[in-house]
């Protein structure tokens, strides 16, 4: 359903600050797959997601979706089938617009936008109904501007928006890293429910190894622009975090050294 073939990306090629982000990445996902992606800082995880979303064009290689090649399709044209949540809770919503307006923007995902009123009684009722599922009381605050919400509330709203308008792929880039642990847990739970309901294909980047192994159906580990481990759901069941670190050391011939990841494993 989604496939990356030999995708590479170098930032500032030939310049002193040249950065290799992806090296010949191959990846193939089926409908309903839930992939978790781990790897130290700078491994290329965000670049991978940006390339799938169309924010960045790869230097080489191609991207296929549902049998069509989409390598050159710009981000706004991919929005019809790609929903995403960014790490920064501020990034996924328009702060100066109301909750209802933000949802209306998302519901028209990938569609032509015309001169009809964006909100009416029906859409407001529908938005109330889906906001209720968050259990945050946002359904009573439809007309408040999103800037009034906390980071966690904004991220929950962004998640709802990312799956409105029926996208097929959901991209989550460390989307709970900025939240407190309890809110993060709630958002993860919500994500599981939504993903199951809508049968989405998900790519989720996280630096929490435990969570990566517990969430989803498959885990890949990246390092210096390459996918170095690919663990399917059968293998994941037996794998522990120390196993994972040990396998990293075996494949790469060095220890994993990323404070943020290692802190999580203590």
């Amino acid at each position: 359903m989604l496939s990356l073939n030999n995708v590479s990306k170098v930032y500032y090629p030939g310049e002193p600050n040249q950065q290799t982000a992806l090296v010949g990445v191959n990846l193939s996902l089926e409908k309903g797959d839930f992939l978790t992606i781990i790897g130290s800082n700078g491994a290329g995880k965000s670049t991978l997601l940006n390339i799938i979303a169309g924010d960045i064009e790869p230097d080489t290689g191609s991207i296929g979706f549902s049998g069509a090649e989409i390598t050159k399709l710009p981000a706004h044209r991919r929005a019809a089938f790609v929903g995403r949540v960014f790490q920064d809770p501020m990034a996924g919503t328009a702060a100066e617009m109301s909750i209802a307006e933000n949802l209306a923007l998302a519901r028209a995902r990938g569609q032509k936008r015309g001169l009809n009123r964006a909100l009416n009684k029906n859409s407001r009722q529908e938005f109330s109904r889906i906001l209720k599922t968050l259990g945050l009381g946002l359904e009573k605050r439809l007309d408040e501007s999103v800037g009034q919400l906390s980071g966690g509330q904004r991220q929950a709203l962004t998640l709802l928006m990312a799956v409105l308008g029926s996208p097929k792929i959901l991209l989550l880039d460390e989307y709970i890293a900025a939240l407190d642990p309890q809110t993060a847990q709630e958002i993860i739970k919500l994500t599981r429910e939504i993903v199951k309901d809508l049968d989405l294909t998900v790519l989720m980047v996280t630096h929490d190894l435990n969570q990566a192994l517990k969430t989803g159906t498959r885990t890949i580990m990246m390092d210096r622009g390459e996918i170095i481990l690919d663990i399917d759901s059968a293998q994941r069941k037996k794998l522990t975090v120390p196993d994972l670190l040990e396998r990293f050391a075996r494949v790469r011939g060095r220890e994993l050294s990323d404070d943020r990841i290692l802190l999580q494993t203590r």
Binding site: A53, D55, P74, A75, H76, R77, A79, A80, V82, G83, R84, F86, A91, G92, T93, A94, A95, E96, M97, E101, A104, L105, A106, A108, R109, G110, Q111, R113, G114, L115, N116, R117, A118, L119, M161, G165
Partner: peptide
């Protein structure tokens, strides 16, 4: 106009261009 679908997209462009791009508006 600023409350139509198009108007909302225009306002969101000024408020958060990255977000509106991710929702399918150039």
């Amino acid at each position: 106009f600023l409350h139509t679908e198009l108007g909302l997209a225009l306002r969101a462009t000024g408020n958060n261009p990255r977000m509106i791009k991710s929702l399918g508006v150039a």
